[in-house]
Amino acid sequence: MAAGGDHGSPDSYRSPLASRYASPEMCFVFSDRYKFRTWRQLWLWLAEAEQTLGLPITDEQIQEMKSNLENIDFKMAAEEEKRLRHDVMAHVHTFGHCCPKAAGIIHLGATSCYVGDNTDLIILRNALDLLLPKLARVISRLADFAKERASLPTLGFTHFQPAQLTTVGKRCCLWIQDLCMDLQNLKRVRDDLRFRGVKGTTGTQASFLQLFEGDDHKVEQLDKMVTEKAGFKRAFIITGQTYTRKVDIEVLSVLASLGASVHKICTDIRLLANLKEMEEPFEKQQIGSSAMPYKRNPMRSERCCSLARHLMTLVMDPLQTASVQWFERTLDDSANRRICLAEAFLTADTILNTLQNISEGLVVYPKVIERRIRQELPFMATENIIMAMVKAGGSRQDCHEKIRVLSQQAASVVKQEGGDNDLIERIQVDAYFSPIHSQLDHLLDPSSFTGRASQQVQRFLEEEVYPLLKPYESVMKVKAELCL
Rank of each mutant, 00 (worst) to 15 (best):
K199V: 10
C172I: 09
A322L: 08
G259E: 02
E79F: 15
D268N: 13
S454G: 13
L69F: 07
K82G: 10
D6G: 10
L440C: 13
G203L: 04
A322Y: 13
L331V: 09
Q177R: 09
F212V: 11
F208E: 01
S359Q: 14
R188C: 05
T111P: 04
R270N: 04
P133I: 15
K479W: 15
Q51F: 03
R296M: 15
I62T: 05
I139K: 06
L108F: 05
E50V: 08
M312E: 05
P435T: 09
S438M: 10
I237M: 10
E481Y: 15
V138C: 09
S448Q: 15
K284H: 03
R83P: 08
F379K: 00
E376F: 12
K470Y: 12
K479S: 14
N297A: 00
T58H: 01
W39T: 05
T354M: 10
I436K: 03
T201M: 00
S31M: 02
A411Y: 05
G169I: 01
T58R: 09
G240C: 02
D215A: 12
A3E: 11
R196T: 04
S253N: 10
V262F: 06
T239Y: 00
P446W: 01
G8A: 12
A453I: 15
D317A: 09
G5K: 14
R245M: 01
E481Q: 04
E417L: 08
F28G: 02
T382Y: 05
A480W: 09
H217F: 15
G240D: 01
T166E: 10
E279S: 06
R83H: 04
P471Q: 15
E64I: 05
N274C: 11
T94A: 13
E343D: 08
N118R: 01
K233Y: 04
Q416L: 10
A256R: 00
R234V: 15
V457H: 03
D248V: 03
T242S: 09
V88F: 14
L319Y: 15
E250Y: 08
V315N: 07
L311Q: 15
V247D: 14
I385Y: 12
H310Y: 05
L135M: 14
Y34K: 09
K415S: 06
F160A: 08
A260I: 04
A392C: 05
I351P: 01
V390G: 07
H97A: 08
R309H: 09
D192M: 15
R85Q: 05
R371Q: 02
Q408D: 08
H93S: 09
D420I: 10
E464W: 12
D6Q: 04
A78Q: 15
E360W: 01
S289I: 05
S434V: 10
R188M: 09
V475D: 10
A18L: 07
P467T: 12
I139W: 00
T267R: 01
S289G: 01
T244W: 08
H310G: 08
F236Y: 10
M389G: 11
A335F: 12
G203W: 01
R374M: 06
L131I: 12
K82D: 02
E220Y: 08
Y432S: 11
Y472N: 15
Q408P: 04
Y21M: 08
L362P: 04
Y466G: 14
F379C: 04
E473H: 14
N118H: 06
M380N: 15
T313L: 10
S140P: 04
Y365K: 05
R171I: 00
K101H: 03
T267Q: 13
L443A: 06
E213A: 09
V247Q: 09
D332V: 00
E328Q: 02
I358M: 14
I238K: 02
R337M: 05
G214W: 13
Y294A: 05
H437G: 10
I72K: 03
L341W: 14
Q375L: 08
A2V: 06
Y294Q: 00
V219S: 05
I123D: 03
D215M: 10
M65A: 13
L174K: 07
D248Q: 05
R188A: 09
N118C: 06
S447W: 14
R374H: 08
T313F: 03
A163N: 00
G240N: 15
I72R: 04
K415A: 06
W175L: 04
L319R: 00
V254I: 11
K229H: 14
V405P: 08
S438K: 10
D191F: 03
T313E: 01
D333E: 04
D73R: 06
D223R: 01
Y466S: 08
L423D: 06
T58K: 06
S207A: 08
E25W: 07
R141W: 11
M89I: 00
A3I: 15
A411P: 04
G393P: 06
Q221S: 10
F345V: 12
I358D: 15
E79T: 09
P435H: 11
S253H: 08
E462W: 15
G451I: 05
D349A: 12
K470T: 14
G240T: 10
S447A: 11
H263W: 10
A102M: 03
W39Y: 14
V29N: 15
A77M: 15
T267K: 00
K295P: 02
H86Y: 00
T350S: 11
R337E: 00
A388I: 07
K66Q: 14
L275G: 05
R329S: 01
Q320N: 07
S261C: 09
F195T: 09
E280C: 08
M292T: 00
G4V: 13
C180V: 15
R303M: 10
I176Q: 06
W39E: 09
S253C: 13
M380D: 00
A18Q: 09
D117M: 03
A150S: 11
C340F: 13
L406M: 08
G361W: 00
S19L: 12
V219K: 04
H159E: 09
L211S: 11
Q61K: 08
C483K: 07
D120P: 00
T239I: 11
E473K: 15
L165D: 00
K367Q: 12
L311S: 02
L155E: 01
L362V: 08
D445V: 09
E383V: 02
P435R: 11
K224G: 11
N185W: 14
L44E: 04
F232V: 01
Q428F: 09
L272R: 01
A348P: 02
K224D: 15
T321L: 06
W326F: 15
A480F: 15
R372E: 07
F236H: 08
L352K: 02
L174G: 10
M26E: 05
I105L: 09
A127Y: 03
A206E: 08
H7F: 12
V368S: 06
T202R: 01
N421H: 09
I287W: 01
K470M: 15
R245G: 01
D248A: 03
L406G: 05
G5T: 14
F195P: 05
E64C: 04
L362R: 02
I436E: 04
D11S: 04
Y365E: 14
Y432F: 14
L271R: 00
V364P: 12
Q241N: 01
S301V: 10
S447P: 15
S454Q: 09
G104K: 13
P24S: 11
H93M: 07
G169N: 08
R404W: 08
K199C: 10
Q161H: 02
L468Q: 15
V390A: 12
A344G: 07
M316T: 12
F28N: 09
E283M: 13
D441Y: 15
F460V: 10
V368I: 06
V413E: 13
L46A: 01
L272H: 07
D441I: 06
Y21S: 03
Q164N: 10
